[in-house]
Design a protein around this nucleic acid. Structure first.
Lengths: 151, 151
DNA sequence: TTTCAATTGTTCGTATGCCATGTATTATGC
DNA sequence: GCATAATACATGGCATACGAACAATTGAAA
């Protein structure tokens, strides 16, 4: 037995999955001070750039399903950082908007990326090690998404 | 406003998180034929190499918490692919063992990595693009884990 | 050896993710 | 103009993840 291709050490996906979780865990202490989760942080980053986004647009940008978004948005709404309103031109759409509270978190969050950079540096990682993988990741995302659509 | 560092497009972690999910989704159709999930696949890869592993060892190798493992193992046990037995030398430990059914999945799973390779190739990705990021990922995992421990 | 700390799992609660399905609304073909 | 398909969300169900708290057991120090 012992299929080489079935050894954990030979799995690229496991590494990706592990690194993603490790870094998200690195964010956690800083985000919890702001009262938000990592996924909520992603949603907020979009809204801070645009404000007023339909659920579907947010989902597409984050590569998540709308049925992941709905409960997420509801929790954010319950926390008072966003509200939903109906689109007047298209009654199917539910538009997510920042509340003043949601908007106020932006300034507090502004130093989070810096905190993370310091965290990585203190772990002994260079900016280069981390940034080097970005082009490959972008290519994988691009091609995998196109592959999905052609199905 | 508009903090550059708070734009989604500037986030490495989001890319990692997205790629991990996209690839796991790529595994899904093949794994569901075997009746297992991606996380269960990871556990099985370890057991196919060793058989007889304490919950804690599995958790450490997968960089997951034991409280994630317990329900996971229970579901696998309910599906008849593993069983748990008490360690005789250390009564705190719960050792996870493959059942014949769990062992039989290995041969079926042997071609899963190949299916994934084909999937990536058909998406237009080269082996190189994907393998290029492995050294960086390994370095990040190594350093982040050490950083965690020193806390 | 006896008390106290550390280790190992488990349980509980909360937040994702995603499949399948359902509902409302809009777009489209005829 | 109308039947039908497509779109946008929401709901329900299941499987992770992880923090917090707890029970059982072992290790270690006094």
């Amino acid at each position: 037995m012992a299929y080489e291709q079935l050894k954990l050490d030979n799995q690229v996906c496991f590494r990706l999955y592990a690194v993603a979780r490790l870094i998200i865990q690195g964010y956690q202490p800083f985000l919890s001070k702001l009262g938000i989760t990592y996924t909520q942080y992603l949603v907020l980053m979009l809204l801070w750039e645009h404000d007023e986004m339909p659920v579907n647009d947010i989902a597409k940008r984050l590569l998540l399903e709308t049925n992941t978004m709905t409960p997420l948005i509801k929790r954010m709404e319950a926390d008072g950082i966003v509200v939903r309103k109906k689109d007047e031109k298209d009654a199917r759409k539910s538009i997510v908007c920042l509340t003043p509270k949601g908007r106020s978190i932006e300034a507090e969050a502004a130093n989070v990326p810096l905190c993370l950079s310091r965290e990585l540096r203190e772990a002994g990682l260079t900016e280069k090690t981390v940034m080097d993988i970005v082009p490959s990741l972008d290519e994988i995302i691009d091609k995998m998404c196109k592959r999905e659509k052609q199905k």
